[in-house]
Design a protein around this nucleic acid. Structure first.
Lengths: 228, 228
DNA sequence: ACCTGAACACCGTTCAAGT
DNA sequence: ACCTGAACACCGTTCAAGT
């Protein structure tokens, strides 16, 4: 007996090692010791296999969030999402879009988000906007951080990156040139190491800090505008 | 004569209409009135075709940014990036990863980012963190907003979404249930309309507001910590 | 240098047939 | 209900051959 669950777990394992690009049904069938066509009895398409794997990754992100200040709960949510992606970096580029498209959303997660925004003082249309801000914040940084590695050919990529950086013109891009040494291999677009090899921990801390401060400040401003 | 440029433009046009998934070299060759193999003389692989198309989309995002307060320049950058994606929504999920992986980065853009962060008062390691925040902010919201549409089968997706929303339990997810009507089809994960059909304009405005306020607040806090 | 024709290897999916 | 075998249609890529 195959079963949808066993299939999705095997698919996740394969995607984790080979990446979603190289993942194929024939190898999945071989790993499961079964004919390729057998898979189609349980799962309708390849797409569903990878989106099912992404759903496995996302499962339970928002369970057991400790009560406390809304700021702390938000930080926990952002961290949880990042940790989940860190365990499956090759799925990073897909998890966000899966979360957006899959009809089987995690109601627990969404309730947490709305609840903490209520505590922050948002309501009505402003709460909807703030909700979208939080979801974007959750996916934004971690997706970028962990989806940087290109498929294979690492050494060539690093060399190309370095030569681009070496080609920065101190006259035409003075600000960039001033901080280039500090940014090199530590900053988006200017790094060649992947988010798994070299996590951007302090960058992520700054990210959560900016998001929390920004929401605090915006909530205050909206409150001021509402009550003159 | 074919030429890399003509090929990439044709590829971009095809991806715009059919999506990157359905894009294939044989049709590209047909559109160009040429044998499939001819393309390989100018471009080494299919991957390069789609990343080349994404690079076309990104080209010139940061040109002619008007001088002014760093907050306004940052807002302009975020808006520009979103506008670029709005013109090519099917490429939305790929543009960010292209920007991260492609060695041919836009030095003008990066110089702008570093420059405005200097003006905001960031320096040293804090500037590197803030730089990563800005890049993530630039890609975060717009990518999510514009990459929501699944390939085909719209009506089925909308129905699945609606039934999920109808299944929210007011007892177990009270906060979510309170705002469900306002969130429906207007919020990430809870919407079925795509970002092109129904732009999240006010959500994006809130996003830039939160990012700018957050950076302002963080810069102040770092300044306070540095000078006791 | 630039392109064609034809082939190769591979892959998602289907379907009649088995148990 | 669940799985196999074999086929179909399609696709990226290569390569010898043409001009």
């Amino acid at each position: 007996m195959l079963g949808r669950e066993r299939i999705l777990e095997a698919a996740l394992a394969l995607i984790d090692t080979h990446g979603p690009q190289a993942f194929n049904i024939r190898e999945l069938a071989r790993v499961l010791g079964v004919a390729p066509a057998a898979i189609y009895w349980h799962v309708p398409s390849r797409n569903e296999l990878v989106s099912g794997a992404a759903a496995l990754v996302l499962h339970g992100v928002a369970d057991d969030i400790a009560p406390g200040r809304w700021q702390d709960r938000l930080r926990t949510l952002l961290q949880r999402y990042r940790e989940v992606l860190q365990r499956h970096p090759r799925l990073a580029p897909l998890v966000a879009s899966e979360m957006l498209c899959n009809a089987a959303f995690d109601a627990v997660l969404l309730d947490h988000v709305v609840h903490l925004l209520e505590d922050a003082g948002f309501g009505g249309a402003d709460l909807v906007d703030a909700y979208n801000v939080v979801i974007a914040a959750m996916c934004g940084f971690a997706t970028l951080e962990l989806s940087a590695a290109p498929d294979e050919d690492i050494e060539g990529w690093e060399a190309a990156c370095r030569s681009q950086i070496a080609g920065v013109d101190a006259l035409r891009q003075p600000a960039l040139a001033r901080h280039l040494v500090a940014l090199e291999d530590r900053a988006f677009i200017l790094r060649w190491s992947s988010g798994t090899d070299r996590p951007l921990a302090s960058g992520f801390a700054a990210w959560t800090d900016v998001i929390v401060r920004g929401l605090e400040s915006r909530a205050r401003a909206l409150r001021r505008a509402a009550a003159p």
